[in-house]
Design a binder for these strands. Structure first.
Length: 263
DNA sequence: ATGGTTGGACCCCAA
């Protein structure tokens, strides 16, 4: 089974790019973030034409929004409101074999990395704490889970173009990377991208729009992740980051992360 | 040190 995550920054203007991803990576399940559309306006028929018969979405107007597109039937579709402020940042579904898929869009957190000065940064840290509490429940049940999405945190030194320069930049501050590591340790999540790439090697999934030449400057960050519970490790076959998607005609600032599991 | 771009809504906000 091939599963992918892709922050598309508006689904309605990114349908051609999604089609390209489907042709190139052939995912059985494609999880999206930042769909930026209310449920009644979701382009369900267009997505169906790409080969996904099972389509679930949790959206709102203008901001946020997540979706799961699947070739195979899914069960127990639901969502969590981790902040209690009705942001559409999570959707989950279960495969026939019982494996749960959780698709998250973690708050970006604004510009100032201080929770007392910046409400959005406080929301980001509260969201991470809620994810950690959720993971504790998963650990107790021993449930196999694929957790993926735009986590908006680049956890490792070489997940950013300059560790030193980004230590004070939201997405790579110590308070964020420590919160993420606490979440990871809660049940020993396996970071599938890093499983196949040494920690000493630069690896990104996002490049800002605010660069003349993203490829030349290469000031990237790894914000998009596919993590699995340890009980799924024997089924992990490969993982890749679709860097070429950043050169699409009308690209998202994120590119897809794709993982293959024999389940 | 600063500003750079994109998307969606509205005449600005979030990323």
């Amino acid at each position: 089974m091939i599963i992918a995550t892709y922050n598309i920054n508006s689904i309605r203007i990114r349908l051609d790019e999604i089609e390209q991803v489907v042709k190139q990576a052939n995912p059985d399940i494609l999880c999206l973030q930042e769909t930026k559309v209310e449920n009644h306006l979701f382009p369900e028929q267009d997505v169906r034409k790409l080969g996904f018969e099972h389509i679930y979405f949790n959206g709102q107007k203008s901001y946020n929004g997540v979706a799961i597109l699947s070739r195979m039937p899914l069960y127990d579709v639901d969502s969590m409101d981790l902040l209690g402020i009705d942001h559409k940042r999570h959707i989950r579904a279960k495969l026939k074999n019982g494996v749960e898929i959780h698709n998250f869009y973690v708050p970006a957190g604004g510009d100032i990395p201080d929770r007392t000065l910046n409400e959005k940064f406080d929301q980001k840290l509260r969201f991470c704490a809620a994810m950690t509490a959720w993971a504790e429940g998963i650990r107790k049940k021993g449930q196999p889970v694929i957790m993926l999405g735009d986590l908006n945190i680049a956890p490792l030194e070489h997940d950013v173009w300059s560790h030193k320069q980004l230590l004070t930049v939201v997405s790579h501050t110590p308070v964020e990377t420590e919160a993420m590591e606490k979440f990871r340790r809660t049940l020993g999540w396996i970071d599938t991208s890093r499983h196949f790439v040494p920690h000493s090697e630069k690896l990104y999934s996002w490049w800002s729009y605010r660069n003349r030449d993203w490829e030349k400057s290469n000031r990237g960050r790894r914000l998009d992740h596919i993590w699995i519970t340890p009980n799924l490790l024997p089924s992990l076959k490969s993982s890749l980051i679709m860097r070429e998607a950043r050169n699409f005609a009308s690209p998202s600032d994120h590119v897809p992360v794709v993982t293959e599991l024999h389940i």
